[in-house]
């Protein structure tokens, strides 16, 4: 909805090359690849563990798992999707995790101060809309809405990561988008 597929293909090819280099013993290539997604994994960790120490331990666990399992990555899905699936499963199965998944819109603030006042307004509206959308959802669907909005993942990828049906994900995201739309209209009214 907000881009073309060409940059995605380029990223995919570049990441396939990085994976090949890692499998040939290049640890710097792994640092490059892991560095790209470290923040995403940390954010997911914060949503599940609710404290930075546990979240950082979680990031380490995920990175080690990703490295060890890399030989089994066939490139059928995007690397980011594969990594997020490992991260999600690690978080779900962790003994340290808190019972409730907390949406990034609710608790852990994903801060980005750059941009115009209009950007700031749009960001606030989005957070409010997502917060309201996920407030009534069961835990397993909250993460789906977050993955769509904050992690920029398409429905199929979210389904692959969480194991939830795509149509269910679609309907929850649709509701969140409708809320966002109404928040934006309210914000525009004098």
């Amino acid at each position: 909805m907000n881009g073309t597929t060409d940059p995605q293909d380029n990223i995919r090819q570049e990441e396939a090359q990085l994976c090949l280099r890692i499998l040939n013993g290049d640890l710097r290539a792994f640092s490059t690849l892991a560095g790209r997604y470290r923040r995403r994994v940390l954010s997911l960790g914060m949503s599940f563990f609710h404290n930075l120490d546990d979240a950082e331990d979680f990031v380490q666990d995920v990175l080690v798992k990703v490295y060890v399992s890399l030989a089994s990555f066939r490139g059928e899905s995007r690397f980011s999707t594969w990594l997020m699936r490992i991260a999600y499963n690690t978080a779900i199965n962790s003994v340290k995790r808190r019972k409730e998944y907390t949406s990034l819109a609710e608790d852990f603030e994903v801060v980005d101060e750059s941009g115009t006042p209009e950007d700031e307004h749009l960001r606030n509206c989005s957070r409010d809309a997502i917060r309201e959308a996920v407030s009534t959802l069961p835990e397993r669907y909250r993460v789906c809405v977050d993955l769509y909005f904050f992690y920029d993942m398409p429905y199929a990828d979210i389904g692959e990561v969480t194991g939830q049906p795509v149509n269910t994900i679609k309907s929850h995201v649709f509701r969140a988008k409708k809320l966002l739309r109404s928040f934006l209209i309210e914000g525009d009214e004098p």
């Binding site: 954010s43 994903v110 920029d152 966002l180 934006l184």
Partner: peptide, 22 residues
């Protein structure tokens, strides 16, 4: 709004400084 909200977690450029967790 969708672009802005996804921006902080978008793919990061390779960082020069050594990340302690990594």
């Amino acid at each position: 709004a969708e672009i802005l909200v996804a921006q902080p977690l978008s793919m990061q450029k390779s960082q020069e400084a050594v990340d302690p967790v990594l």
